[in-house]
């Protein structure tokens, strides 16, 4: 029952920008929908027990790849969005078999170092990525001859992507595959003895989660129209951890709630970044101290069978 009420509330919130009609509210709502596929990708990795700090880099790879495919190769935006999202997926496929042998703290550090290298490459390879001065002139997104020029257009695009990725992640969670992924976190030895190829499933999860991050990156690139290496570094790592923690990792709905609660914060506190960080810190500590399972634990009270 509670879950239905939350769904209804989210739908209501999703419709809210049209009732208010302000560009500013539309912008915040668009940013929320852009962050949802990214945080859902990160959440899929948390489900298999591996906190990946490489996802901001995957997000950036998706963003730069989509933008450059349209700008340099003249690819139609929808195609470059999909192909662009495949780029981080391929990178995940390449490094996954090596990285995912490592677990726990070491995986966290490994993905962090990887993300830093990717971000440094964004900064240093100025010929391709534009470096710190940025990549300008990303064309507007268009689909079937329809050019998206207004913020509400991008909100609809973001909403569609967020809903599709959410449905995909929920389907994965509820399927047998989801059960296998869960078992990798709970008891890997047992699930391997039952015949699951642990490494292969981990890589598959890594690739899918990188694709979700890439989609989110592509929409971000077309929406903002300008890219710099700045957003793809440490700050986004913190943002994503806050979203997953606040929302709770126990269900796919958790990170969505996390994004809805967290993303408006920097916009509301635009002139007081230091207070925003303090609120982030207090949230992290508060949830770790009093509600380790996040907001979702107040909504879904029974833990699904392990």
């Amino acid at each position: 029952m509670k879950v239905r009420a939350v769904y209804a509330l989210i739908l209501l919130l999703a419709a809210l920008p049209w009732f208010i009609g302000s560009r500013y509210i539309f912008h915040i709502a668009t940013m929320i929908t852009i962050m949802i596929p990214l945080v859902l990708g990160m959440h899929l990795m948390v489900r298999i027990g591996q906190l990946s700090l490489a996802h901001p880099a995957f997000w950036g790879l998706g963003a730069y790849a989509s933008a450059l495919l349209t700008m340099r190769l003249g690819m139609p935006p929808l195609l470059s969005l999909l192909v662009g999202a495949a780029v981080p997926s391929l990178v995940a496929l390449a490094v996954g078999p090596i990285f995912l042998r490592i677990k726990g703290v070491f995986f966290v550090l490994l993905t962090f170092a990887f993300g830093e290298i990717v971000d440094l490459i964004f900064q240093e390879w100025t010929g391709l990525f534009g470096g710190n001065s940025g990549l300008y002139g990303i064309p507007k997104f268009s689909i079937l001859g329809l050019r998206l020029t207004q913020i509400p257009h991008y909100y609809v695009l973001g909403l569609i992507a967020a809903i599709l990725v959410y449905l995909l992640m929920r389907a994965i969670e509820r399927s047998d595959v989801g059960a296998i992924l869960e078992s990798l976190n709970e008891d890997e030895m047992l699930s391997r003895s039952m015949g699951a190829n642990a490494l292969a499933w981990r890589v598959a999860a890594f690739v899918v989660s990188a694709f979700a991050a890439g989609i989110s990156g592509g929409i971000y690139a077309f929406y903002i129209g300008f890219l710099s290496p700045d957003p793809f570094g440490f700050q986004t790592i913190v943002d994503l951890i806050v979203m997953v923690t606040v929302g709770g990792a126990g269900s796919v709905l958790g990170p969505v709630l996390g994004a809805i609660v967290t993303v408006p914060l920097p916009e509301l506190l635009r002139d007081a970044r230091e207070y925003q960080l303090m609120i982030y810190g207090v949230c992290l500590i508060g949830f770790m101290k009093f509600a380790k399972q996040g907001l979702i634990s107040f909504i879904v009270d029974k833990r699904r069978g392990a």
């Binding site: 703290v105 923690t245 303090m278 810190g281 207090v282 949230c283 992290l284 500590i285 770790m288």
Partner: peptide, 30 residues
């Protein structure tokens, strides 16, 4: 006050310390 309750738990310990780190930074920034 903070870490006693997460001793031995890698992920919550990490998140807790990240939270403390952000708070200390912003306090000094202010």
């Amino acid at each position: 006050v903070l870490f006693r309750s997460v001793v031995g738990e890698e992920m919550p310990g990490m998140i807790m310390s990240l939270g403390l780190s952000i708070i200390l930074q912003s306090v000094v920034l202010l």
